[in-house]
Simulated scan of single mutants.
Amino acid sequence: MSLSLIAITGCSIKSNKTSEIIKAPTFPKDFSDIPSMIEESGLKELKSSNTFIKSIPTGRNDPFLPPSRQSVKPRIPKSFKFLGFISTGKSISAFVSFNNESGTIKKGDIGGKTTKLLPNGWLVSDLNKSSQLLKLSFKNSESILKLMPERNYDIKIIR
C-alpha cells in the first residue's frame, strides 16, 4: 500500500519551479549623466490674471441702453474748447480748455494718462496748423475740430 501511495502522489505533484532573472535596465551613454544646463523652452511667461482680464474687451459702456443698430460716434464733452495753436521750431501744440483747466496739448497726449486737458482715453492723433484742424481719437472713432477763424490766437515764440 505504501508503494501505491507513493506512486499515486508522485504522479500528481508537479514541480513548478519558475526561475525569473530580474536585471537592472541599461541606459545609453547619452542618458547616463544629468545635463548641467537646462534648455530654454521658448514659452512666454503668462501675464498676471488681472492684466489678462483687463485686456479682453467686453460689452458696451452702458449695458442698460436699448440695442442700437447704428454705430454711435462718441461726442466730445461740451466743456472741451479748442482755442488755438502755438508752434516753437519743429513742435506744435494746441491751446485747449477742459473742465475749468486750460493749457497746451501735443500729438500723442492721452486723456487721464499724460494730460488732464482731454477726456479720459481720448488721444490727440493729429495737429495741423495749416488747415487749423485738431484730430482726437477715442477707441475706433475720430473727431475733427476746426479752429474758428475769429478765435485764432496763433503765437510764435521768437528767440
Rank of each mutant, 00 (worst) to 15 (best):
L136W: 15
T88M: 13
F31V: 08
F80G: 00
A24G: 09
F82G: 00
L117Q: 11
G112N: 05
V96Y: 11
K17E: 04
E101M: 12
K14W: 09
P67V: 08
I8M: 14
S41I: 13
K135V: 07
G59N: 12
L46E: 08
I158N: 05
A24K: 15
S143L: 07
I22S: 13
I86P: 01
T26A: 04
K73Y: 01
S15D: 13
I56V: 11
E142Q: 14
F98A: 00
C11H: 03
D33W: 06
L43V: 02
I157S: 00
I110R: 13
R69Q: 03
S130F: 07
V96K: 14
I155Q: 14
P66T: 14
S41M: 13
K146C: 04
T9F: 14
L83M: 15
S102K: 10
L83E: 04
G84F: 10
L3E: 03
A7E: 09
G108I: 14
K29E: 05
V124S: 04
N100Q: 04
L123V: 13
I105W: 09
S49A: 09
K44V: 00
R69V: 08
P77F: 10
Q132D: 03
I6A: 05
P35D: 03
R60E: 12
S71H: 08
K116D: 01
L134I: 11
A24H: 08
Y153Q: 15
K81L: 08
F31C: 05
T104N: 13
G84I: 12
G111F: 06
A24S: 13
G84R: 14
S125G: 03
F95Y: 12
T114M: 15
L118M: 09
F27S: 06
S32V: 03
I76S: 02
G89D: 11
S130E: 14
R151K: 14
I110A: 02
E150C: 01
G121N: 04
D30Y: 11
G59Q: 15
E39L: 12
P74T: 02
I8G: 03
K90S: 01
N50W: 06
M37Y: 00
I13N: 04
N99R: 11
N16T: 10
K106N: 02
I53L: 13
N61V: 08
L3R: 11
F82A: 10
S48T: 04
W122M: 14
T114C: 12
E20A: 08
I144V: 10
F80N: 09
P35G: 01
S143F: 07
M37C: 02
P25S: 06
K113P: 00
P119A: 03
K107Y: 08
I21L: 14
S12W: 12
T18E: 08
N152A: 07
F82S: 07
N16W: 07
K106W: 04
V124R: 15
D109T: 12
L123M: 10
G89Q: 11
L83Y: 03
K78L: 13
L3Y: 02
W122L: 12
P66R: 15
F52E: 07
I38S: 02
P66W: 14
S79V: 08
E150Y: 06
M148C: 01
S79A: 06
I110D: 12
K17H: 06
T51G: 00
I86M: 15
M37S: 02
L123D: 07
L5Q: 12
S131I: 02
